[in-house]
Nucleic acid binder design. Sequence first.
DNA 1: CCGAACCAGTTGCAGTTCGCAATCGGTTCA
DNA 2: TGAACCGATTGCGAACTGCAACTGGTTCGG
Lengths: 171, 171
Amino acid sequence: MSADHRSGCPINLSLEVLGDKWSLLIIRDMMFGNRRHFRALLTDSEEGIASNILADRLTRLTDLGMITSAPDPSHKQRILLSLTEPAIQLVPVLAHLGAWGRRHLPVTRELAIRAELLERGGQPLWDDFMDELRELHLGIARPAGTPSVLDGLTEAYLAELKADRGAAGVT
Amino acid sequence: MSADHRSGCPINLSLEVLGDKWSLLIIRDMMFGNRRHFRALLTDSEEGIASNILADRLTRLTDLGMITSAPDPSHKQRILLSLTEPAIQLVPVLAHLGAWGRRHLPVTRELAIRAELLERGGQPLWDDFMDELRELHLGIARPAGTPSVLDGLTEAYLAELKADRGAAGVT
DNA sequence: CCGAACCAGTTGCAGTTCGCAATCGGTTCA
DNA sequence: TGAACCGATTGCGAACTGCAACTGGTTCGG
């Protein structure tokens, strides 16, 4: 045993870990944006997280066992962040949450395409994606021949971005 | 258009609605505990929400279109709270979130049984449950003959409670 | 018909967290 | 060698949180 929880309800405990405005966004960016260190999360953040809050959440998520950090061999001062297995298993939660938001909230088209593909792919796609994340973050090789889900999502996003800029007229 | 959002990402927008420690717990209690007015949510809350925070979240969730309130015909001063269709469609999200918490966090056995049943039942059970919620909260009759998912979950919870007390010895 | 319990909140207050901007000391790159 | 980059830290005002007491009205039991 460890901490003082408000209750032993699974949903409550999940919210104690993830129930704030930033933690899931950080995990989302590590998952779908493949951002693996502090600066990448800070400056490429769509929502503009502050550096102190990012630092706080990273240590918090590390303490909770959702991410791990290790020195990056290529850059001496860079720290490589990785998702742990529990965090990788959030893929279905994020997929459903994205699907729900896409259906009921004023999403931007180019930012919604990934949620749409993820919803359409369903559990089989999520499984492939989790295998890919295990390879990227845990070093566990995935079955040969499976195409990259991350590449597919990213390509669709970029295509949507281009189409959108084309339709609207670039500045 | 309406408000100033941090970004148009579906996950971000969902978190702007649900990304705090209490909103989803209130929806959970309305869904699975069938609590339909202020006092019920306040005093039967497993986690002990404060009255001012409950009041704040209820108006907030109402403004966001997640719940509606109406005078209760039986009790003149009582206000009946109902989930809206978007809130009802959170069932899969809550099911996955509960399943994840059950797998990775120190849940209590009697509070985990509902998450377990919900996970085992999968999408078909969630569909039945959403139909039942539409009947309870929106007044839309569900297909005849379908058994109550809510009753099933509640019975399993109570049975687990009893078994637990039996095993541990009642005080 | 009267008092107790119940109803949905509100108020005041202290402590914590949030978001922002500036900054830090060290590292890498040109 | 100097500029850019690295993961943070600090200071500050504003916003949010949690707690306890309280309000004005309603219902229920005897």
